[in-house]
Design a binder for these strands. Structure first.
Length: 483
DNA sequence: ATGTGC
């Protein structure tokens, strides 16, 4: 690790001399301990990313970084599209617009506790989860093409949600410029019956409590809708399912064919397959990826609709009466065209965030009007046993193109986790801790054991110390559905 | 992450 230069307590740099072809230095965020425990693969991958055409300022990795496909998960790479910058599916992730949504209620822990089993059992029954699960939204292939072009806006038009939900979603729930003609039939086939499904792996839905001692910034918390101690909220994490996966697969193949032969781009790892952003292939993938982003917004919108229905039934009051308003919906697997100041000059950059959350500060364009004064809500999910955070974007985030962490980050492989824990026992241990969990698979549950992840409090402390975001509320789980 | 894979 002697190749790491300490820039501050939470910033570590690998210089361009480290590897041939690096165009910019790599910077990894985290405390000394988090850096010490990071996969060695992260350093190799982030320095590979530093060789890509158009990369601007730094190849970055957040404190929850771990080994991924081509790019590290936790990676941020901003490409200068006016100077040959590329777009790379590996910098976005297979699960396009994997993201988080947070919804409040006006219920307290005391009111929910007696019903938690009934509540979680009903959520589990009503929200399809697990590999290969099918949704309940029955639409034609052509209608699905409209869903991926219109995102959550399609859902609200079709009575899956409230009009005011839309302004509390990144891009207002519809990434403009999505073009279904750039999507393969295979992707359409895989996605058409997956709207409103949670998925598997680390995708989950959680009922959480904002304990009094965990409300760090009461004013911002109130702006976000968390107004009382022990308030119950719902957080969930899912993405674009088989649809996004197929889009990524399709375009990785396309890029591998043209990258060198047509554009003369040489890369260190096939998994970094890319194309110039300003090329027919790059533009086609950008328009297709936007469909993946919209599928995911629609997916989370329909899931929210079901959550509201279940709460209304269990508590015998309407979702409106229960104050089930959205805080925000954030993506953490995307590439977006943004304006950023680099060395004093405004530049148009394609910012890849893979396992990294956008964290725009106060007064920035695209932050919802009701949050303009305090910054964008940042939702970071921990492991199912430990806890999660609601944070806010800050001005000093400019250093990372206003990006921060997205979760805890694994420290143990899924294989090793399955050998270390039994899902059945874990469920009992979690019950003893006050968390009622339901899962579609015991081995899947074991894979998500809290101890297989970095400590979420350490990760969050590093992001705050580095000036990437600000803690608002820590949220404690009381019920969980694991996909 | 993923109808889990050349």
């Amino acid at each position: 690790m002697d190749f790491l230069e300490r820039i501050s307590d939470t910033i570590w740099e690998i210089p361009v001399s480290y590897k041939e072809g690096m165009r910019v230095p790599a910077r990894i965020y985290g405390s000394q301990q988090l850096i010490r425990e990071m996969d060695a693969g992260v350093f190799d991958q982030v320095t590979n990313v530093a060789t890509l055409p158009g990369i601007t300022k730094y190849a970055l990795c957040m404190p929850d970084g771990h080994f991924g496909y081509g790019f590290p998960i936790g990676g941020v790479a901003a490409m200068d599209i006016e100077n040959g910058g590329v777009i790379s599916p590996g910098g976005i992730g297979f699960d396009i617009n994997c993201g988080m949504r947070l919804v409040v209620t006006n219920l307290t822990y005391k009111e929910v506790k007696p019903h938690i089993k009934q509540l979680v059992d009903n959520l589990y029954k009503q929200i399809p989860a697990g590999v290969g699960s099918k949704g309940f939204v029955d639409i034609s292939r052509n209608e699905f093409r409209r869903v991926v072009e219109q995102g959550a806006q399609w859902c609200v038009r079709n009575d899956y949600g409230w009009e005011e939900d839309l302004e509390l979603i990144e891009e207002n729930g519809c990434f403009a410029g999505a073009d279904a003609s750039k999507i393969s039939d295979r992707a359409i086939d895989r996605g058409a019956n997956q709207i409103g499904t949670l998925g598997s792996g680390n995708h989950y839905l959680e009922v959480q409590v904002a304990k009094k001692e965990h409300i760090f910034d009461p004013e911002i918390a109130e702006t976000f809708g968390i107004t009382m101690p022990d308030q119950v909220v719902i957080m969930f994490h899912c993405g674009s399912r088989g649809f996004g996966h197929q889009v990524a697969t399709d375009y990785l193949q396309t890029f591998l064919k043209v990258m060198d032969s047509k554009y003369g781009i040489k890369i260190l790892d096939r998994e970094l397959a890319c194309a110039p952003f300003n090329s027919p292939e790059g533009q086609a993938y950008f328009a297709a990826m936007k469909c993946g982003i919209n599928m995911s917004f629609a997916n989370r919108q329909v899931i929210l609709h079901r959550i509201r229905e279940v709460f209304a039934r269990v508590f015998g009051r309407s979702a409106r009466d229960l104050g089930m308003n959205m805080v925000y919906d954030v993506a953490h697997n995307t590439a977006k065209l943004e304006q950023h100041k680099v060395d004093g000059k405004e530049r148009s950059l394609l910012v890849h965030r893979k396992g990294s959350t956008r964290a725009f500060g106060p007064h920035m364009t695209d932050v919802p009007k009701q949050y303009q004064a305090v910054g964008q809500p940042v939702i970071i999910g921990g492991s199912m046993e430990t806890g999660s955070y609601l944070l806010a974007g800050v001005e000093t985030g400019a250093e990372t193109f206003f990006s921060t962490a997205h979760g805890s980050g694994r420290t143990m492989s899924r294989t090793k986790a399955r050998k270390t824990w039994r899902g059945e026992q874990l469920q009992k241990d979690m019950a003893a801790k006050g968390i009622y969990v339901r899962s579609t698979s015991w081995s899947g549950l074991a894979e998500e054991a809290g101890a297989a992840y970095k400590n979420i409090d350490d990760v969050i402390a590093a992001t705050e110390l580095a000036g990437l975001c600000k803690r608002v509320v820590r949220l404690t789980p009381i019920g969980n559905i694991k996909g």
